[in-house]
Design a protein around this nucleic acid. Sequence first.
DNA 1: CATGAATGAGTTTTCATTCAT
DNA 2: TATGAATGAAAACTCATTCAT
Lengths: 189, 189, 189, 189
Amino acid sequence: MPEPIGVRRAQAQRTRSGVLAAAAAVFVEQGVQAPVRDIAERAGVGVGTIYRNFPTRADLVTAVYRHQIDTCAALAPQLLAESASPFTALTGWVDAFVEFLVTKHGLGAALGSDDPGLENLHALMLDTLVPACATLLDACAAADEVSPGISAYTLMRAIGNLCITGPDYERADAQRMVATLLAGCRRAA
Amino acid sequence: MPEPIGVRRAQAQRTRSGVLAAAAAVFVEQGVQAPVRDIAERAGVGVGTIYRNFPTRADLVTAVYRHQIDTCAALAPQLLAESASPFTALTGWVDAFVEFLVTKHGLGAALGSDDPGLENLHALMLDTLVPACATLLDACAAADEVSPGISAYTLMRAIGNLCITGPDYERADAQRMVATLLAGCRRAA
Amino acid sequence: MPEPIGVRRAQAQRTRSGVLAAAAAVFVEQGVQAPVRDIAERAGVGVGTIYRNFPTRADLVTAVYRHQIDTCAALAPQLLAESASPFTALTGWVDAFVEFLVTKHGLGAALGSDDPGLENLHALMLDTLVPACATLLDACAAADEVSPGISAYTLMRAIGNLCITGPDYERADAQRMVATLLAGCRRAA
Amino acid sequence: MPEPIGVRRAQAQRTRSGVLAAAAAVFVEQGVQAPVRDIAERAGVGVGTIYRNFPTRADLVTAVYRHQIDTCAALAPQLLAESASPFTALTGWVDAFVEFLVTKHGLGAALGSDDPGLENLHALMLDTLVPACATLLDACAAADEVSPGISAYTLMRAIGNLCITGPDYERADAQRMVATLLAGCRRAA
DNA sequence: CATGAATGAGTTTTCATTCAT
DNA sequence: TATGAATGAAAACTCATTCAT
């Protein structure tokens, strides 16, 4: 009774999705360094399955955040088109980015980490988020709203760092500091 | 003459200093979570010596940074007295703080960590650095140079985070972003 | 057919049994505080396997002795039914208990230990062996063959202690002393 | 200024006594396996001093208990002379022995241990306590008060074991069980 | 393809013991 | 002789990773 290939593939995809959802949840609770076993248990699969689908931890981390990263990137042109000024668009976009970061405990640290295994995530950022942010920054610079000397990458790393929360420095604090940083960018213009 | 205490004490002090130096170096390379054994090897001592002098990792981390923290704190009143304006003093102090942070890779992360073993370091900051910074912030607020809504603690955590460096986000980037953050504080005034 | 579960489970069971056998042997030689690594080596498994199957030392100790403890407990009602007098039944049961103890060097000490990790074993005794012994003691007391003032728990602890053997105080000595203790119980009646 | 030898020797003796007192106290609290450092701290000396005076742990343990052992041994002929019957003398002597054992937590276990380092203590028992006890036992046997088949050594080991106390099996329980054992000896006569 | 038992390297931590002073 | 800093072997425990089924 040879199974139709499509069924298998669909099942495999479901497994993969389950792992991603579990990993996302565990990352929120424990950070991206959480034990593989915890993720496997949460997903209801064996650890082997995790390793099959995501040979390295970075692969898993990357996959977990790829969709949200893409969504975030896509927001840039949309905001630019809708907003009254480029800086307003930038502000809106950064708000969304921050929201993304503070919801995923540990990702900020992951972005700032020099763990060689997290290169993929870095690459993903460089390839999608940085250009998106750069578009906005360039528009702001063109409108003379921010200094042209600030690179999108550096700004995003800074924002990523500011979003590393903890006791006595929580979500709201991170949001305020990022807003302050943006204000500093504008003033520099 | 049961013992020439002075000699022994001097030797012990030398050992202790050697451990501190080794730990500082290893922290720069590997962060404050570096294996105790690595520090012992670098210091040329047994692990037991580390544990004798610094029973917990936090004790070691704290000791490594205590002197510089104290120095940094002492700088605040001095700058306030010398500077043309409170904000200039604040800027100068933050420069020194950043210098301290970027030199000690991993300390920024340590400050932001919720690792229970790092409470001592937290306490040290709260007890010395935060009041020093608060003095400057209060002076700035009194001179209407910054918004009164920014707490010294939050600002320092933010600066600490901004100083988590890595590939493509290095010392100079951190310094620029901190300056931008400060500019944002001023603008808010 | 994602997995032939039965085979795996059987193998796991075999591993578990092997660990139990190895632990039993090592306990005889070194006592229940023997290094985990020694047990792992004797069993031909990694230490991780021990920890997987028996997260705490107490879990392992308990598992090693559970079967024999249950068997011993089950003997009590049987002997009571078969024997000419309650005291004869008690004597027979204590013989079996002693046999159990002297075969497992170190268990007597384990029973007497206040090591918090051995609570499980204590609990196991209290839940199974003590009631079994109490049944016999009560019957003896009812028949006026022993003094009613002796608690089953205390008697078993005493017997456990008497069974801590060593050079110049071996199995036969322990047996004789336990018999003497029992004789003392009877005399008190 | 050459010190008079006698002064030095007296000082050394004082040190030795202090160590013995400290060791006795620590043994009561932690058992004879207590860390050497704890004893040194309690005695207010360095660990080196302990090792100088008592190269092995057994030397220390033995020295700690030697005086009391001697005292206990000396009690035997005295009780035999004073008592109405040999068995009464034996009972009194055993009471004293038990008192000695239950006051020194861990000594009972030490007596029963096959730790090769505790041979000295064993030897001390064999040389002093066993003969003392044997005198009493022999007298009892001669008076037909106990069975002649019980060796003093075995009886003392048994008593030592019965005196290993712990939670739920305390001093009073040990005393009762020892009394029961003695009763058993008598009955056997 | 999925499973999860097994592995063992890596880390922390404790303490007996030594030895320079 | 006394000191106690230093040592390092020993033991516990964790978790990433492999692989037989």
